[in-house]
Design a binder for these strands. Structure first.
Lengths: 365, 365
DNA sequence: TCTAACTTCTTAAACGATTTACTAAATCGA
DNA sequence: TCGATTTAGTAAATCGTTTAAGAAGTTAGA
């Protein structure tokens, strides 16, 4: 037992100390050799760097450096649902692309933080980041409080801007209203609405308007309200002529199941409005598989205008939102907060636009 | 000028020290109150937590904790090209989903590291992570050395497994060969090949087989070799009857441009093989726009079998690879390395499968 | 009553860097 | 040659935690 030598764990990676000792200089000099070349002679710098290379020291430990520098060059991204589903959704993909583009130019890294609605928010609390972007957080989730408690610069995306925080959002309601009006003008009177989650529970099945009174996922709720407004204005009976099917997630598989449920319940809408394009695309696929013609027998419309929307057959009538621009704006807000340029909270709301394609047509039946 | 009080910056977030002082205990006790409740009396713990809440201390600084604990609970992901393009590609999206799923169950966060081939690799060198997954790194990129130098557990995806590192890959070559054979059996003799980048430079235009001799992007190069093998076996003149168009990225827009270039050059292939589905989808769209019938006039095939491949009209003949499974395996390898279960490097190679759909047919012209 | 074993809390040493303030030596101008 | 400035390097403080080791007090068993 050598009382001194066993302090040196043979496994551990070399540190700045190891290099300093081996090169016969102080740790400050080693640090300078890497970070501030003009603070030392070229000769010593060369020696230090070559010793470092020899030993296998490839640069400062990032965590230690981050601690000392009090910054991480990292931005956190929290998706409201499971990351796996988030990465699967084209709209959030585009959003992420917008963020990535903005961060990339500054050399910032993007930390994807897992958070399942059922799970805890430890990962978010313990994330080593300089700022946070929160995407579509459910209104009453503890996650929001966790983020606020951390007192980091944060941007809330698709979150009501009445709260005292910086937000980026979209005119969901008016876009949805325009879409429903379009279908009403085409003569439709019997509507199937395919919605994603309305509350915390993962319930799949027929739902009703009561469930969206409170505690709802913001953008989806807003869209439903938009649909309802248009329907009410047209004097359509919300209980008799409209049925809502609530899905667990926004993905084609669930849109298919919604249609299957409508058919099984012998509810035959002449128009189907989904709360997202992916649900609408699933709906179209299932309708076609069941022998229906779109839009001949049933019109289908979505929301988002993801790239797939224009590729599917028939091309989808939808409401366009610029998800990538949304990402860029969120990143821009955050970067400005990180630079200390802006203190007060700001809000940005993007326009929506009705895009009429081939999946909707005049009512025939 | 108060010599003592100006040490306390009023802006800075409270630390464990602040809380300890305010609660009249040591920092160790504060730490224990949060992390090891059974190490102190319930009474003191309550007091500490309530003082913390009062002061606005929401938990340990993640960076400091990571330093002390010597782990970050974070895995780094490096995409070979710009993150923006990476997030846009369905195959890498699926791959990311596979990783996300595996990491989510362990509460690990995923750090997306920007790296542009032209740019430097500082972000990768300075990333605070426990392990790294490198996706499709160009073979001669300095990035690979940077990752190896860091001596972290690392998994190389779609990278030749002759190097001494853990890899996950796909039978690209044999899959590509099967696809080309399929087209040859349909009677095709004049081929247009749409490739993504073959070397470091971002060149767009007609290319030739020489450019893939060395220094190439691994999976794309392997696929091209597979195509070539099948063509050679069928005695097709690689110079006269085959033309390669090289794109900057794998995205539909570039596939469109490739077709436009073929047409402008008056080269009319009866079959177009793309190195990826997105290029193939772009090709189909452009061919349709130019008045060609697919597969009547021209057959088109891709590689990957992304979800869009089966949705497009006509559904795309392609080679299926399970990108999500690839992600899961990469994550599994990495997790096992992080757990210290495995030391030596391992390799996993996934199968590919030819999927014949409607975009390919017998040669007519 | 004495010792052993708990509890409960504190002291102080890490973790691995960066950076300020300082020293010693070299250089310069007059 | 002298003082002032510049250059090159070092010592030590600091970033905010966690945790091993230990101290002080309490309880329990014989």
């Amino acid at each position: 037992m050598q009382p001194e030598s066993d302090k040196i764990s043979p496994q551990r990676n070399p540190t700045i100390k190891t290099v300093a000792a081996a090169a016969g200089v102080s740790t400050a000099t080693v640090s300078n050799a890497f970070n501030r070349p003009n603070q030392l002679s070229a000769e010593v710098r060369e020696r230090v760097l070559s010793v470092a290379r020899e030993i296998g020291y490839s640069g400062a430990n990032p965590v230690a450096r981050n601690l000392r520098r009090m910054s991480t060059n990292t931005v956190g991204f929290v998706y409201s649902e499971s990351l796996e589903f988030g990465l699967n959704d084209p709209a959030s993909q585009q959003f992420l692309q917008g963020i990535a583009r903005a961060l990339e130019s500054r050399g910032l890294a993007l930390l994807l933080l897992p958070f399942s609605a059922t799970g805890n928010s430890e990962t978010v609390r313990n994330a080593a980041v300089d700022g946070i972007i929160l995407y579509c957080p459910p209104m009453n989730t503890p996650l929001v409080q966790v983020v606020k408690d951390r007192r980091l610069p944060a941007v809330f995306v698709d979150y009501p801007n009445r709260s005292n925080c910086t937000t980026v959002g979209v005119r969901d309601r008016s876009g949805a209203r325009a879409l429903a009006k379009h279908l009403i003008q085409l003569g439709h009177k019997r509507f199937g609405i395919i919605s994603s989650r309305l509350t915390e529970d993962f319930r799949e099945g027929f739902s009703d308007w009561d469930r969206l009174q409170h505690d709802f996922y913001y953008p989806e709720g807003e869209r439903l309200i938009g649909y309802r407004q248009a329907l009410e204005e047209a004097n359509i009976d919300l209980n008799r002529q409209v049925r809502i099917f609530e899905c667990k997630h926004s993905a084609t598989a669930f849109g298919k199941r919604a249609i299957a449920a409508f058919l099984a319940a012998e509810f035959k809408p002449t128009a189907v409005i989904a709360v997202s394009d992916m649900l609408a695309i699933g709906a179209i696929e299932q309708l076609k598989a069941a022998g229906f013609n779109v839009p001949g027998d049933v019109s289908v419309a979505g929301f988002d205008d993801v790239p797939e929307a224009s590729r599917i057959e028939p091309p989808l009538t939808t409401v366009r939102q610029d998800s990538e621009e949304k990402g860029r704006r969120a990143a821009k807000f955050l970067l400005e907060m990180l630079d200390g340029q802006v203190e007060e909270s700001r809000h940005s709301v993007l326009q929506t636009e009705l895009i009429v394609r081939k999946s909707t047509g005049a009512r025939r039946t």
